[in-house]
């Protein structure tokens, strides 16, 4: 009997593809966002408002993941930007290989902003790097304000928290300050933006955040490559 130390990441194959995607994104100047939340917290609707709010000149592409159906891709295809549905057939997360295969359908030079809508799930997507620049977690006010404490992994790894459906605040017992406190307990430096896809509140701030954060990435790439 011999014990051999290995010390290797279990998802090293995913990690390898994610690293390759990340360097391709940098090379082509693609700013990639990975949107993660529970089912029903408003990812697709927010994405619709986001696409509607972006200039048609922007070169945006969307990958949307679901276990079944092409419904989300249909909803998102009305905004003049290329959209692809990734149907996982029961798998609860997207992995880097799925993203790589989907991107084979597109010319990377034609894309500046790639938005990935992950499968609705707060647990599994947190384990899979997709090569994104930023993970974003959504929490709607119809959920519990203790979600950051129950699912710390994804809240610790996400740079931005979008508190969604804030137009419903008068009708639900959600304590938004408590939610913000919980998120910052898990991730003290977390940026938080409150939005409503129904009233449009906060959308401007969210679009500005995208613009600024994209600028930050470009500056980093320019500094690295001279």
């Amino acid at each position: 009997m011999t014990v051999i130390p290995v010390e290797k990441k279990v998802l090293s194959e995913n990690q390898r593809i994610a690293a390759s995607l990340r360097s391709r994104f940098e090379e082509h100047g693609i700013f990639c966002l990975n949107l993660i939340s529970s089912p029903g917290s408003g990812k697709t609707t927010l994405l619709e408002r986001t696409l509607a709010g972006l200039s048609p000149q922007e070169r945006v592409a969307v990958l949307t993941g679901d276990l079944q159906t092409e419904n989300d891709a249909k909803r998102l295809s009305h905004y003049g930007f290329p959209v692809q549905q990734i149907t996982t057939g029961g798998i609860c997360h997207l992995d880097a290989g799925m993203i790589e295969r989907a991107l084979n359908m597109w010319q990377l030079d034609d894309i500046d902003l790639l938005i990935i809508e992950n499968v609705g799930n707060l647990v599994c997507p947190s384990s899979y790097d997709l090569g994104e620049e930023v993970k974003i977690v959504l929490l709607s006010v119809t959920e519990g304000e203790d979600k950051p404490l129950k699912y710390p992994s994804i809240f610790a790894k996400s740079e931005l928290l979008l508190l969604t459906k804030i137009d419903l605040l008068p009708h639900v017992p959600f304590r938004i300050e408590q939610a913000r406190t919980n998120a910052r307990l898990v991730h003290p430096a977390m940026k938080i933006i409150e939005v409503s896809s129904t009233t449009g509140e906060g959308l401007e701030q969210w679009l500005t955040w995208i613009k600024r954060r994209r600028q930050q990435m470009y500056q980093r790439i320019c500094a690295a490559y001279g």
Binding site: T2, V6, E7, K8, K9, A156, V186
Partner: peptide, 15 residues
């Protein structure tokens, strides 16, 4: 700040 504890590693194999 959270800096570690998201390990998911193959530590060893026994043959």
């Amino acid at each position: 700040l959270f800096v570690g504890g998201d390990d998911l590693e193959l530590a060893w194999v026994e043959v």
